[in-house]
Design a protein around this nucleic acid. Structure first.
Length: 299
DNA sequence: CCCCAGGTCTGCT
DNA sequence: AGCAGACATGGG
């Protein structure tokens, strides 16, 4: 395995949290080593303190994939400054969540792999999504080694049979995957075009794809296109915002807030790194079994 | 047998 | 534009 050491400006970094917090699916950890698919390759990575050991990618690509070039101390500082500017005092709830998810990075996924993953994610849970992705890799993946596959190309998925794809636990999402694959296959420069667009235009463009609504589009923009202001609003984030931040949102409505109201508020409140703030709120290390409201309440 | 999950689409007002 | 229902399926 190749290796490098994290520098001061790249700390804190937490590989386990970054790979298991629900921004990427299908990665498996055996003992201390993670293995998964990235950019058409099988990649292995492990972290021992400040040492990163890896294989299957160049060092440059590992650094990019793991978001290790992000100015992480500037990012948290920016988020805190925007909070102060907005409401005049620190945000205890955010700080509690942040303290439990320090070291998290926004990964830089391959757009196609990310798009497939999040079309599969609709109305499902993290563990099921991971199984779904691995079943797709197993059945349709382009062969890498004997037992390891990477994401099937758009051409492959566009021509697969829907009943067969449904055997990969995709359910009603199968036709979305096939139609989206057809579109990407017929427009090979689609991702290249999207990459050049500003946030809102890129989002509108992605939302033209079958199975891609505002949430999936925001996930792809945040996790694959480096739009760090994109805020995916899922059930968990919606509950947090409606429970903890409703009083800060100027709206005539009561009850369920529209998607763009929540996303727009987060961008105003947290600033241009709202996507990072959202991940800190979403991805608390020990949140997975019902500790949603215990540890952090206003003073 | 119930409800929930990193939602989207369709078809009504 | 905004709002219910339908949609497959595993987990708890």
């Amino acid at each position: 395995m190749k290796s490098f050491s994290l520098t001061e400006s790249q700390l804190p970094f937490d590989l386990d949290l970054s790979l298991s917090c629900g921004q990427i699916f299908g990665w498996k950890k055996t003992r201390d080593t993670w293995k998964g698919v990235h950019n058409g390759s099988i990649v292995t990575i492990r972290q021992k303190g400040i040492l990163i050991e890896y294989d299957g990618l160049s060092q440059q690509d590992v650094i990019r994939f793991l978001g290790l070039s992000d100015p992480i101390s500037d990012i948290i500082e920016s988020i805190r400054e925007h909070i102060i500017a907005y409401k005049g005092s620190p945000d205890r709830f955010f700080e509690t969540r942040y303290s439990q998810s320090r070291g998290l990075r926004i990964l830089r996924q391959h757009p196609w792999e990310c798009l497939v993953s999040f079309i599969c994610s609709a109305n499902s849970n993290v563990s099921t999504i991971g199984k779904r992705i691995n079943l797709i890799l197993g059945r349709y993946g382009t062969s890498c080694t004997l037992f390891e596959n990477t994401f099937p190309d758009p051409a492959v998925l566009s021509q697969c049979q829907e009943p067969e794809l449904r055997e990969c636990l995709t359910g009603y999402r199968a036709p979305y995957l096939i139609k989206t694959a057809q579109y990407i296959h017929e427009h090979p420069d689609f991702f290249h075009q999207v990459r050049k667009m500003e946030y809102h235009q890129a989002k509108d463009t992605l939302m033209n794809l079958p199975g891609v609504g505002p949430k999936v589009a925001d996930c792809v923009l945040l996790f694959a296109f480096e739009h760090l202001n994109a805020v995916p609003v899922d059930i968990r984030i919606r509950k947090i915002i409606e429970d903890k931040y409703a009083s800060l949102i100027h709206t005539d409505k009561s009850g369920k807030l529209p998607y763009d109201t929540i996303g727009g508020f987060c961008r105003e409140y947290f600033g241009p790194y709202a996507g990072y703030a959202q991940q800190y709120l979403f991805a608390t290390r020990d949140l997975e079994k019902g500790e949603v409201t215990r540890s952090a309440e206003l003073p």
